[in-house]
Design a protein around this nucleic acid. Sequence first.
DNA 1: TCTGTAATGTAGCTAAGGCTACATTATGGA
DNA 2: TCCATAATGTAGCCTTAGCTACATTACAGA
Lengths: 149, 149
Amino acid sequence: MPSPKIARPSSRPVRSAPLQAASLRQTRRAHATETAEDYVEAIADLALAMGEARVVDLARRLGVTHVTVNHTLARLQRAGYLSALPYRAIFLTPHGQRLAKICQQRHEVVVAFLQALGVPPKIAERDAEGIEHHVSPRTLAAFARHLAQ
Amino acid sequence: MPSPKIARPSSRPVRSAPLQAASLRQTRRAHATETAEDYVEAIADLALAMGEARVVDLARRLGVTHVTVNHTLARLQRAGYLSALPYRAIFLTPHGQRLAKICQQRHEVVVAFLQALGVPPKIAERDAEGIEHHVSPRTLAAFARHLAQ
DNA sequence: TCTGTAATGTAGCTAAGGCTACATTATGGA
DNA sequence: TCCATAATGTAGCCTTAGCTACATTACAGA
């Protein structure tokens, strides 16, 4: 079907294909690390709250079964975010701790920002959980700037 | 391991497990429709810009191979978002058109909002592509409100 | 010390969403 | 008309992330 597609019937300046393609690639990349971020953050929270993170608690907190948690933990351990021994608690590596800290801070900023805009707390929390993974440093800085005034 | 976990060594009021679990469930739900949203939006854009949407154009715009596009189109067709015949262009059903319209509007609001906060256009576009799928109606309204002033 | 049971682990399934390699179709232009 | 080639489709692979059902382990309390 070698049609040279020269003309563009519409004059509307739609999103440029390359930019959108790049953006979506970026989004997919972000999605690949979303799980890691959610897990290390939850593990850090649990370690602080209960002294250690266990599989059941993670499952409860993440809204999945313990089987899914187990499966994901194996991957995150391979990736160097955490260490765990069979039937024992889970601990973050320094690498995992760094990531957890960044995520916690970012989460707090996003939630505070949404609430400052007038979004009700529970909805802010809910939306933030999805939004935060796609907030670049520049955008996070813009949120923080807005909060500062 | 029946340990009654009564005590909470820390006093920090961490995120409640049920709320976070519900939020993450919501995020996963959103993620399941993300692809549909991206595709119908791109198809609507292409239909407007080139008169019709073809697989290659979608692949270019979405940053994936034509194989992935094909595979996803089959699913979206089953889901009733679009209609397509082999080796022919793709068309949105009324259902798909409705979704496309909502997504386009939401996308514009999110991009404009980020830019209004001082985020550079390209970064705003990039972040919006990931963020928009997790913006609830309430939050979108808050963005629009902020833009109005 | 022993054991019931909660916690943890394993087997094996599903679906989405990527990919490469190869097969088939449609069509513009010779 | 016919065919080269771009577009489209198919086969078959991978990874992530869910799940149910079942097996194993550890430990609190009798």
